[in-house]
Amino acid sequence: MGQTQDIESDQGYGIQLKFTDLEDGKYSVTMVYNSIMVNQPMAGLDYDSETATSEPTGSAKAIASVLNNELYFTLSKNGEVSNISGFEAMLDSMAVSMGITDDAQASMFKSQMSSQYNAQSIVDQLKRTLIIFPDKELNKGDTWSEDQSVTVPFAMNIQTTYELADYDDETVTLNIASDIFTEGDEANMGGATMTPDLSGVQSGTITIDRNTGLILKGGMEQLVSGILNMTSPQEMEIPLEISGKTEVVGSIE
């Protein structure tokens, strides 16, 4: 009989988005991480930039170096993200913070970190926070649907239904319900090749600023379960259950 292993991971990111030029229906956006919190007991990692009273140590140094680095991208009115840049400079600062001076070691380190900090991760993150409304007038109780594909932690399809729960002159409140399915793509995790067969649901409520469309607050709960089918270095089926909560708090300056 196999053993059950619980892995706890708590992460929080404070992000500032600055919208500058609007040209041909597209915004130029500058994104900055202004706070980071990561708590992973199994990895011995516990860092919170807002409460830290001393300089970070170990792998926390790389995470802390992400603060105040600028990323740039273009955002269209229908939520398409393109022209993402700034990650190479961010990865360079992470390598420097870890004291890595050898070119080969720095290249290997940046390759490892780029699995988390990359252009696709930004696209996936924004997909979860940008709400694309239908091009028609909506009333209370109206619903619409959207399909999204994300790559983290696995290649998954998220089929979401939005319901207009309430609105006033300043805000809009939406109820959200999603079905989640992995898309059958192989993944490499720690040198093992496996194909996830997972499905689940997520639900929650968000409040949006009516003037800008940006999220002011929101809460989501997610439960995904199934099997990881390992094919290398050995064949094995690994039961997996992922539960999570997401909270978003935003402000407009």
Rank of each mutant, 00 (worst) to 15 (best):
G2R: 11
E8P: 00
S9F: 10
D10N: 15
Y13C: 08
Y13D: 13
Y13E: 10
G14F: 05
F19S: 11
T20I: 06
L22A: 03
L22D: 01
E23P: 00
E23R: 12
K26A: 12
S28F: 06
V29C: 05
V29G: 03
T30N: 10
T30C: 02
T30K: 07
N34K: 15
S35N: 08
M37C: 08
N39M: 03
G44H: 12
G44S: 10
D46E: 07
Y47C: 08
S49V: 06
E50V: 05
A52S: 12
T53N: 04
E55A: 13
T57F: 03
G58M: 08
S59G: 12
A64Q: 00
N68L: 00
N68P: 01
N69H: 12
L71H: 03
Y72W: 05
F73S: 06
F73T: 02
K77Q: 15
G79I: 12
G79D: 08
V81P: 09
V81S: 10
S82Y: 11
G86I: 05
F87Y: 11
L91K: 13
D92P: 04
A95P: 09
T101D: 10
T101R: 01
A104R: 12
A104C: 03
Q105P: 06
A106I: 06
S107Q: 13
F109P: 11
Q112N: 11
M113Q: 08
S115N: 13
Y117S: 12
A119R: 15
V123R: 04
D124I: 11
L126I: 07
L126P: 08
R128P: 07
L130M: 07
F133D: 05
K136W: 00
E137T: 14
K140D: 11
K140F: 05
E146K: 13
Q148P: 02
V150C: 04
V152W: 02
M156N: 04
N157M: 06
Q159K: 14
T160N: 07
L164R: 09
L164M: 12
E170N: 08
E170V: 00
E170K: 14
N175S: 10
I176R: 11
I176Q: 10
A177C: 04
S178M: 06
I180L: 09
F181S: 04
G184Q: 10
G184S: 11
D185T: 13
N188H: 00
G191L: 11
A192D: 03
T193V: 14
T195W: 03
D197W: 00
L198T: 02
L198P: 02
V201D: 11
I208H: 04
I208K: 02
I208E: 09
N211W: 03
T212G: 04
G213N: 04
G213A: 07
L216M: 07
K217Y: 06
G218E: 00
G218R: 03
G219F: 01
G219E: 06
M220L: 14
M220G: 05
V224C: 02
M230W: 06
Q234N: 01
E235N: 13
E237W: 08
E237P: 10
P239M: 14
L240H: 00
L240T: 06
L240K: 00
I242M: 15
G244P: 01
T246I: 14
E247S: 14
S251Y: 09
S251K: 10
